[in-house]
């Protein structure tokens, strides 16, 4: 069985430009264009976050769509389910806005929409081949790959480091 693709983060590559956040909000707007999105109500929201960590690390965070998703187990109204691609989704019709999902999410990547009164999070851009945040990243800090491919690349790089350290 082929592995599904995930959004992975190469934390050493992020420069904190926040392009991913803009692209995400635009991808979740009605017009799907930046110049249209800035005038829309409700305001389109980004589902990806970039945190700054001392001394100077920029860390993009986005829903990991956990295999055992705490949010899904915690949702009291049964609004959260996993689709056939493994993407954890919130059914906004069922969401009652209790924010339990926000409370239990280990990454803090579920948002509270103040205008729609619903929880929102990454939906992996179902209409796109590659999620908008990944396409927008100018440094390649965000990648859309299978876990096998991502860890394979990490191993390759680690092997090179090891060889170099051995001289």
């Amino acid at each position: 069985m082929t592995q599904p693709k995930e959004i992975f983060v190469k934390t050493d590559r992020c420069v904190g430009c926040l392009s991913c956040t803009i692209a995400c909000a635009v991808a979740h707007s009605n017009s799907r264009t930046l110049f249209g999105a800035v005038f829309e109500k409700p305001v389109p929201k980004s589902r990806i976050y970039v945190e700054w960590s001392d001394p100077d690390k920029k860390i993009p965070l986005v829903c990991r769509h956990c295999e055992e998703a705490p949010c899904m187990f915690a949702c009291i109204s049964g609004a959260i389910h996993r689709d056939e691609n493994g993407v954890v989704l919130t059914d906004t019709d069922k969401c009652i806005g209790c924010w339990t999902c926000v409370m239990v999410c280990p990454y803090g990547v579920i948002g509270r929409h103040l205008e729609t009164h619903k929880a929102y999070r990454c939906d992996r851009c179902p209409d796109r081949d590659v999620p908008a945040c990944v396409s927008a990243c100018p440094t390649g800090a965000l990648v859309y790959e299978t876990a096998a491919s991502f860890s394979g690349a990490v191993r390759k790089s680690a092997s090179r480091e090891l060889i170099r350290s051995e001289g």
């Binding site: 430009c17 926040l18 392009s19 803009i22 692209a23 635009v26 930046l34 110049f35 927008a136 100018p138």
Partner: peptide, 8 residues
């Protein structure tokens, strides 16, 4: 995509 902050 070109930088959205710059575009705005």
């Amino acid at each position: 995509p070109e930088c959205g902050f710059g575009e705005l």
